[in-house]
């Protein structure tokens, strides 16, 4: 569990990125921080591994104030995945995955063994191990980024718009892959995105942030859809434009789902017998 207690962050230039936020991020669940750019969501994320120091307030991990943990060891036990993968271009894939293991003093043979295991975990062929990042596709690089973050088997995984730079088809694939991994590994994942559909797909718990990382609303995707607390939330999730209100219309013997603007959103899957 990660807990923010009245945390604020004001940068040197006077910008208030985070303004007095209190937030509990449950363990072993995916919490998605979603907001438009400038909502301070990345700042919030980077405060968890002390890449950014709060101006005031405290952050606790499992009851322990992280201000009392030196940043470097703290970061080594928290996985971090960013957009564009951030792989080290001068190291092979296997060495990239093993980076934190090396930092922790694990010997090369053991580190390589573990790295290969992780490549399998994220669904990558071992043949890629000796390649360099520039030889991989964007989607593959992003998988390596995830494998690297998992190397020391951290409890916490921070993901900063990890799928923001890949095309929609690959993104959908990676999203499903992350859901599969999470079913197996059950990490505490904090995921930052500006895409509300991604938030609803991945999040057990979705936190919608306004300016200054003010929490506009927090809850499960269905809770948010059922009861948007404010107009801001309604507009953010698209409820005000009718995007989230679906009706069923029969077309050629099938049930077509139509959204509030009259645009077809999909076809209702009809399994056994006639649709109820």
């Amino acid at each position: 569990m990660i807990e923010f207690r009245s945390v604020s962050k004001e940068f040197d230039d006077g910008t208030v990125a985070v303004d007095d936020i209190s937030l509990v991020i449950p363990a072993r669940r995916v919490t998605v921080l979603v907001g438009s750019s400038g909502s301070g969501k990345t700042t919030l994320l980077q405060m968890i591994n002390r890449m950014v120091e709060p101006t005031s307030g405290t952050i606790e991990i499992d009851g322990e104030n992280i201000a009392g943990i030196a940043p470097v060891p703290l970061r080594r036990r928290i996985g971090y995945v960013i957009q564009n993968s951030g792989l080290l271009p001068h190291r092979t894939i296997i060495d990239n995955v093993a980076t934190v293991l090396y930092l922790e003093g694990v010997r090369k043979p053991q580190a390589h063994e573990r790295a290969l295991e992780l490549l399998s975990t994220v669904g990558l062929d071992h043949a890629l191990a000796t390649r360099y990042p520039s030889q991989l596709s964007g989607g593959q690089q992003q998988r390596v980024g995830v494998a690297r973050a998992l190397a020391v088997n951290p409890n916490i995984l921070l993901m900063d718009e990890p799928f923001g730079a890949v095309d929609p088809i690959v993104r959908a694939e990676l999203q499903q892959e992350l859901l599969r991994l999470q079913r197996e590994l059950a990490k505490t994942i904090v995921f930052v995105t500006h895409d509300i559909d991604e938030a609803f797909l991945l999040g057990d718990n979705v936190v919608i942030l306004g300016e200054g990382a003010k929490i506009a609303q927090q809850g499960s995707p269905s809770e948010l859809l059922a009861n948007p607390a404010t107009e801001f939330v309604a507009s953010f999730i698209g409820a005000d434009r009718g995007r989230r209100e679906l009706t069923i219309r029969r077309v050629n013997g099938r049930s077509v789902v139509i959204d509030g603007t009259g645009r077809p959103a999909g076809v209702l899957a009809e399994t056994d017998g006639p649709a109820s």
Partner: peptide
């Protein structure tokens, strides 16, 4: 690249 730098810091260098 800035993303490499961020990633390296986050990994605990």
């Amino acid at each position: 690249g800035p993303s490499v730098r961020v990633a390296a810091t986050a990994m605990g260098y």
